[in-house]
């Protein structure tokens, strides 16, 4: 009962925030990833990238999904949104090298075995790494999404964020279940 209400709420929230963006639970992507897609977008609102992270004023905020894309069409609908006056762009990549030019890098569960290599590769890039892999934050990822009692929470590795020269809003930090320093 509660969960059903929550879904409705989130959908409404997403609609309010995203305007014409349609988030449908009926799509091929799972309900969980629909929410996680919104999370990606929401987190982007509370993070500041350094100057050099974008090639120009007009360049979009690019979300790159490394590995198998679990979001389905949920991410496509995000691409029409804007974050801090930047358009959102979504790219699916298979190799970490392609992540250059991405501001957000979502590491798919399929990349679990190559996680250390991936994190090592992007450690000095101005890129926000997000994943729902276990121990992602401990491994050096910046935001790890956790699902608890039907709710999605996150942990943040502040050290990694600092290395990536990203400023994470205290509001976001306040909501984090754990912060690794």
């Amino acid at each position: 009962m509660i969960s059903k209400r929550l879904i409705v709420f989130l959908i409404v929230l997403a609609l309010l925030a995203a305007g014409p963006l349609q988030l449908s639970a009926t799509n091929s992507a799972s309900r969980e990833y629909t929410l996680k897609a919104v999370f990606l977008y929401n987190i982007a609102l509370f993070v500041e990238w350094p100057e050099g992270a974008f090639t120009s004023e007009q360049s979009p905020l690019t979300i790159c999904v490394l590995g198998n894309n679990p979001f389905g069409e949920a991410l496509d609908s995000l691409s029409r949104q804007t974050v801090k006056n930047r358009k959102l762009a979504v790219r699916q990549i298979n190799r970490v090298e392609e992540a250059a030019g991405c501001q957000i890098l979502f590491v798919s569960a399929t990349e679990k075995m190559r996680l250390d290599d991936i994190l090592t590769a992007v450690r000095n890039w101005n890129v926000l790494t997000i994943s729902d892999l276990d121990n992602f934050a401990y491994a050096g990822g910046i935001v790890q999404l956790i699902t608890l009692e039907d709710k999605i929470r996150f942990e943040i590795n502040l050290k990694s964020a600092q290395r990536a020269k990203l400023k994470i809003s205290s509001k976001l930090l306040k909501l984090a279940r754990d912060i690794i320093e």
Binding site: F9, F46, L175
Partner: peptide, 15 residues
């Protein structure tokens, strides 16, 4: 408003 905006965004009533 400022302190609860994130909580709303992330549906964190507790916060």
């Amino acid at each position: 408003s400022n302190n609860t905006s994130a909580a709303i965004m992330f549906n964190d009533q507790k916060a």
